[in-house]
Computed example of a mutant assay.
Amino acid sequence: MNAPGDPPRRIAIVEDDAHLRRYLCEVVDADPRLEVAFTEGDFVGATRRIDGCPVDLWLIDLQLPDGNGADLVRRLKAGGDVKCLILTVLGDRTSVIAALDSGADGYLLKDTDPAALVGSILSALDGYAPISPQAAHFLLDLYQQDVRKARPTPGDAALSAREQEVLRLFSRGLSYREAAGILDLSTHTVRDHVKAIYRKLSVHSRAEAVFEARQLGIISASD
């Protein structure tokens, strides 16, 4: 965030619609913490500016008449540490994922109100990743899919009978020493079983192991 007396942060605007380009200039210049570095209406014009005047953040449309905004983001990111925000009418899943895969620091829709737009620019400059709610929906869906893929299935887990016994005792709150005594094993052997359980269930604690085992039906909720 700009401190009092700091120069305004310089914003490049790449947008092919002249009316919207003027509007974005007005929004940016209305905030004393920001100023427009330059504007361009196409991909080629924007690439010619990359090595020119310094820019703190690029505000880029996805659909340019001679190229894709995501490709421009890739070129900018390959050349240095610069912030890039996508500003587009496209709120579909494919566009969101393609833009963020390119390295964009945020994804905003063009109906974002002026105050929210300025706030998002400042947020991106501070290292955050502003995302329009419509775009965030797709990211949440992807995250949930990844979690489901990462979670082992009962077949993947394949806990031995002894490992299941150890888990059932842990689910009742027993310690390593107590579990070892009931199973007539050494504490060291119980620890070896626990390591195998953690590996198979992709967890890092007894509580997580018990939770995952119940979710997978390896042990019952009453255990």
Rank of each mutant, 00 (worst) to 15 (best):
D29M: 00
L159F: 00
D111S: 02
D141T: 14
H19Q: 13
I121L: 00
V194G: 06
L64Q: 05
I60N: 06
P114Q: 07
P8G: 03
D71M: 11
A124Y: 04
Q164A: 05
H188R: 13
G52T: 12
D113V: 13
P8M: 03
V89Q: 00
R162L: 11
A207G: 04
D113T: 10
A99D: 01
R33L: 03
S95I: 04
V14R: 02
H193G: 00
R75D: 13
P114E: 10
Y143D: 08
A115C: 04
Y128M: 09
A135W: 12
K149I: 14
P4Y: 00
R199M: 04
A135G: 08
F138S: 12
E165H: 11
G5C: 00
R22A: 15
D126P: 05
E212N: 07
A209H: 04
A30H: 03
A150K: 13
R162P: 08
Q134N: 08
L20W: 06
K77R: 05
P4I: 06
A158S: 14
A46R: 01
R148E: 15
D126I: 05
D81A: 13
P114F: 00
F138G: 09
Y198I: 11
D81T: 14
I86L: 03
Y128S: 14
G41A: 12
L24Q: 03
S120I: 05
T153Y: 02
E35D: 03
I121N: 03
L85M: 04
R214I: 14
A99N: 03
N68W: 02
E35W: 01
L169E: 11
I218G: 09
V28P: 11
S95W: 00
N2I: 08
I97N: 09
A157L: 06
G181R: 12
G5R: 10
L72S: 03
P32G: 01
K77D: 05
S205P: 13
V118L: 05
D105R: 00
V27A: 01
G106W: 02
I197L: 08
H193F: 09
A180E: 05
P54S: 06
I60F: 01
I131R: 15
A158N: 15
L108R: 04
L72I: 09
A180C: 03
V14T: 11
I97G: 08
T153Q: 12
